[in-house]
């Protein structure tokens, strides 16, 4: 399985990426994950203004193959959600790295140290067997 993950992002163990822009980060889902569950038909976005904790559910989603939820890679205040995804969930399949799900003002920047870089995340994800 030939999978790639963009280098400039950080990742958790639950199919989500984080893009750091100072105090505020963008959070979205990875392409390998979008590919495995196929076309998204519905996204239940998190609520703008709410607090989110790392590990808590931040998004519930429905695709043709799977319905479930994902855990947030960060803690902080949700300052913006990407409402376009509500109208067109399949944007996530088209370009999951462009269409972030939420913007979070970090509570504690040190928390980012617990996330993986692209190489680590890829190894974690890898289908390649030694």
């Amino acid at each position: 399985m030939d999978e790639e993950l963009p280098k400039g992002l950080l990742y958790n163990d639950n199919h989500s990426w984080v893009k750091v822009n100072g105090d505020v980060v963008e959070v979205g889902i990875t392409k390998p994950f979008a590919n495995s569950v196929k076309e998204f038909v519905y996204i239940e976005l998190p609520e703008q203004g709410k607090e989110i904790k790392k590990g808590e559910t931040y998004v519930s989603m429905e695709s043709v193959k799977w319905s479930g939820h994902l855990e947030s890679p960060v803690s902080g205040e949700i300052v913006e959600v990407n409402n376009a995804l509500f109208d067109e969930p399949s944007l996530l399949n088209q370009d999951p790295y462009k269409h972030w799900i939420m913007r979070v003002k970090l509570l504690d920047k040190d928390e980012l140290n617990g996330l993986m870089d692209a190489d680590q995340a890829l190894a974690n994800l890898s289908c390649k067997l030694g």
Binding site: Y42, E62, S63, K65, W66, S67
Partner: peptide, 10 residues
């Protein structure tokens, strides 16, 4: 926290 595999609510 139900997980549906193979179909969605939609």
């Amino acid at each position: 926290g139900v997980q549906l595999v193979g179909f969605s609510v939609e």
